[in-house]
């Protein structure tokens, strides 16, 4: 497995160097965007398939797609800030030997992504939606913090990339938003290969030393992290900004438990969760 990781790191490092992108030249930023277009594939919008969605006319759905994109880009920024910090912390630290060459690219590429996401949100929405997360200090078993860091990154990026792939392909979408999805996906596809491999390595390295209570805590933590990550996709501020009629919090609650929305979440995370079960990281079915 160790050799496998080394080969993966070497291949990903070479690919990152070969495909390096200047984030300041990769995008043209039009003065204004055509706000009559879709900005996110309608099937990915958090209210799609709900009773509220059915009440919206076509212009309202497109308006909602813009604010959903601002939320998607905002939550990417809020996911990438601690990711950049966490990657920097792990450079040249015991246990990171062998992956550091790639961590440099991982960190650089995540920083680049925030240029795209922040640029879009600030220019066209005039804001980034605030982060509603707080981290509390706590004790960890040996290796637990590193494992959880990379496992959370993997779960977060698996979901994000599913949106990127679908939106990058969708010709109904406004061009700038679509290009950002594509640029993000091109880097994320490498991050996901690394993430899957490295998370399995870290789990194999540390899990045997954990108590049954720690192992159960780790599994519960990942389950809660997945629920929280999905929760961020249902933002009442989006519904208010898009002018969706009704109580934005009630709309959020109804959408989150709607069968179509559950099916959507389940479908998007099925592959990643199957991988986590196959590697023994999870030991049961997890509801998305």
């Amino acid at each position: 497995m160790k050799g496998g990781l080394e080969e993966t790191v070497a291949a990903l490092t070479a690919a990152s160097r070969r495909k390096a992108v200047d984030p300041y030249a990769a995008l043209e930023w039009p003065q204004t965007l055509d706000r009559t277009r879709y900005f996110m594939s309608p099937e990915l919008i958090s209210l799609y398939g709900t009773e509220t969605w059915e009440l919206l006319d076509e212009p309202a759905r497109r308006r909602l797609s813009f604010w959903e994109t601002v939320n998607f880009f905002s939550l990417n920024i809020h996911g990438e800030r601690p990711l950049v910090a966490g990657l920097a912390e792990r450079l040249y630290r015991d246990g990171s030997e062998g992956v550091e060459a790639y961590l440099h690219h991982f960190l650089e590429e995540e920083n680049n992504h925030m240029v795209y996401f922040g640029g879009f949100c600030r220019r066209y929405a005039g804001k980034v939606y605030p982060d509603r997360q707080l981290a509390f200090p706590r004790e960890y078993a040996p290796g637990e913090e590193d494992f959880l860091f990379f496992a959370q990154v993997l779960l977060f990026e698996e979901i994000v990339d599913a949106y990127n792939v679908a939106c990058a392909r969708d010709e109904r979408l406004e061009a700038t938003a679509r290009r950002i999805h594509l640029l993000h996906h091109l880097d994320e596809s490498r991050h996901l290969v690394f993430g899957r491999r490295y998370v399995a390595v870290l789990f194999a390295r540390h899990a045997a030393t954990w108590s049954p209570e720690t192992l159960e805590d780790v599994r519960l933590h990942l389950t809660a992290f997945l629920a929280m990550t999905w929760g961020e996709y249902y933002n009442p501020c989006v519904y208010a900004d898009a002018g969706v009629p009704g109580n934005a919090y009630a709309i959020r609650e109804a959408a989150f438990v709607h069968p179509r929305c559950r099916d959507h979440r389940r479908a998007l995370t099925a592959g990643c969760l199957r991988y986590l079960r196959e590697t023994g990281i999870l030991d049961r079915e997890v509801e998305s």
């Binding site: 509603r132 707080l134 509390f136 706590r138 933590h221 629920a227 929280m228 929760g231 959020r252």
Partner: peptide, 16 residues
């Protein structure tokens, strides 16, 4: 650890 940092999002939305 009755609640963790992963519950803050939902707690904040509940309080709002």
């Amino acid at each position: 650890r009755i609640l963790t940092s992963l519950h803050v999002l939902e707690l904040v939305l509940f309080l709002e």
